[in-house]
Amino acid sequence: MAIKLKKGSGGFEKIPIDMTPMIDCVFQLIIFFMLTLKIRANEGDFNINMPLGQGVGQQSELPPIKVRLESNPDGTLRTIAIGRQSLGNDQRAFALLNQEVLSLVGRPGAAFSKDIEVELDADYELQYQYVVSAMTACTGKVDEKTGQPLRFVEKIKFAPPRAKRAK
């Protein structure tokens, strides 16, 4: 690893460079990065704005789209309903919810879509994953061609929490 040359009396001679400290540092860095590395999926978020004491629909002139999520005692989903229409409790129900909300909005990016509000009214015991699925179904869909999200509802709100079921 001696690279530099120095002109001496007998021609050029190599000047040794001690690489040890640099290699020590570099290995320390590698060990640090290896230990701190966590390979995990990225996180995304849903923004909601919930001022205290504000009733649902007070921000907007449009009435909110009411989505009711009923749970079984064990926290699994019993049924999703939009208005008075029950949609079921499986993956198809979320697809139907997505279609229903889209039909109410008209099309993704419609002028008034920013004013439309969805109110989620879930049972206390319902597992949070169903609420996330409902929020996903209500706010938009993924464009099959581009893989990019198309959002058609920006505002999500929770109805006041329901009472815990007596055991």
């Binding site: 999926a41 990225n42 996180e43 995304g44 978020d45 849903f46 923004n47 909601i48 704005n49 919930m50 001022p51 205290l52 996330v132 929020m135 996903t136 893989g147």
Partner: peptide, 19 residues
Amino acid sequence: CQQAGYEKFSLKAMQPEGK
């Protein structure tokens, strides 16, 4: 949080694997 004076919320969820 609302009662304490916070009113902006962000609910986190995971992206599907491979996205």
